[in-house]
């Protein structure tokens, strides 16, 4: 087990530093906006002015997790599907329109995917293992597997996180690349992970990322069989799938609350974690099946469960 000692999410929900993120959820609508904390509490104004929304929210969430565990993390593992889109778009526009020969450095420096993990390292003054995983909608799963391996190697605490941001251009990708009725949003979720038990005793039991799955239901059965868990032992399923072979009353569509970004399944994990605390149930499964014929499966377990 890889126990979750702290979760911090900044999303279009009022999710940052809430005791139970499920308490204040509202369904995402076209006009919802990212609900940001006061970033000046997390980043010095001189640095803050350069940071795009994705960098601001990732640093704030990462710092919340680091502060909660007090001892420095020994690895930072970040997943992002599309990276720093605001700065990338800005930089490309400058290339396209610039009249002089010199390009603005800031947008260029901050347009790479690994800016997020790098900046967190600088802000935390933490020079330990630092990795960025970019695997489309499986970016959380990849970063999580890396974090689990880091814990297995003996690192006491690992900072795991995801971040993705929306820009207007993404709406132009509908309906070819993105679903026509989707609401494109931004979001970040960070976790402080350890093999050491957390107070809540809830953690990641297993994770699998599958390219070209045989079928969602088939893969779920295989995944659970490997863990020697029966399908009817699953108490809740968080998914972005419209139809799954589970009783309707236990299935929650996390995308209805997160909106669409390719690492939104991390918000599904946050919802599942808080639900397990509240109900004292044992297992929550996060099923992430969005695009590119891939499937991510994450199982959360509550050691304090009463069933």
């Amino acid at each position: 087990m890889y126990y979750i000692h702290k979760i911090a999410s900044i999303t279009h929900q009022d999710s940052f530093n809430q005791t139970d993120v499920n308490d204040s959820l509202v369904e995402i609508a076209e006009d919802t906006v990212l609900i940001s904390p006061d970033y000046k509490k997390y980043v010095l104004p001189a640095s803050l002015r350069r940071l795009s929304p994705i960098l601001r929210m990732a640093v704030a969430a990462a710092k919340e997790c680091q502060e909660a565990i007090t001892i420095p993390v020994e690895a930072i593992s970040v997943g992002t599907a599309l990276g720093c889109l605001t700065d990338t778009e800005k930089f490309l526009n400058v290339i396209n329109t610039v009249e002089g020969e010199i390009l603005s450095p800031t947008a260029f420096i901050q347009s790479t995917h690994n800016t997020i993990a790098g900046l967190i390292s600088l802000e935390l003054k933490n020079h330990s293992y630092n990795m960025t995983h970019t695997q489309n909608n499986l970016s959380l799963e990849m970063a999580l597997i890396d974090s689990m391996l880091c814990c297995d190697e003996g690192k006491e605490f690992v900072l795991l996180g995801v971040a993705d941001e929306a820009i207007d251009f993404l709406n132009k990708l509908k309906p070819i690349v993105l679903p026509e009725n989707s609401i494109v949003t931004s979001g970040t979720t960070f976790f402080a992970l350890s093999k050491k038990k957390s107070t809540a005793e809830i953690g990641f039991l297993a994770c699998n990322s599958i390219i070209k799955p045989k079928g969602v239901e088939v893969e779920i059965v295989l995944f659970l069989r490997e863990l020697k868990i029966e399908i009817n032992e699953i108490d809740r399923v968080y998914t972005n799938q419209n139809s799954l072979d589970f009783p309707k009353e236990i299935v929650v569509n996390y995308e209805a609350y997160s909106g669409l970004y390719f690492t939104a399944n991390a918000f599904g994990v946050h919802m599942a974690h808080d639900w397990l605390i509240k109900t004292a149930k044992k297992y929550a499964l996060i099923v992430n099946s969005g695009c590119n014929n891939s499937l991510g499966l994450i199982l959360l377990k509550n050691d304090k469960a009463q069933n």
């Binding site: 350069r50 009249e99 002089g100 020969e101 010199i102 390009l103 603005s104 450095p105 800031t106 420096i109």
Partner: peptide, 13 residues
């Protein structure tokens, strides 16, 4: 120093 680079861009553009 990054701002200094931005100034160089500003004068050029």
């Amino acid at each position: 120093s990054i701002d200094a680079l931005e100034f160089i861009v500003l004068l050029d553009s």
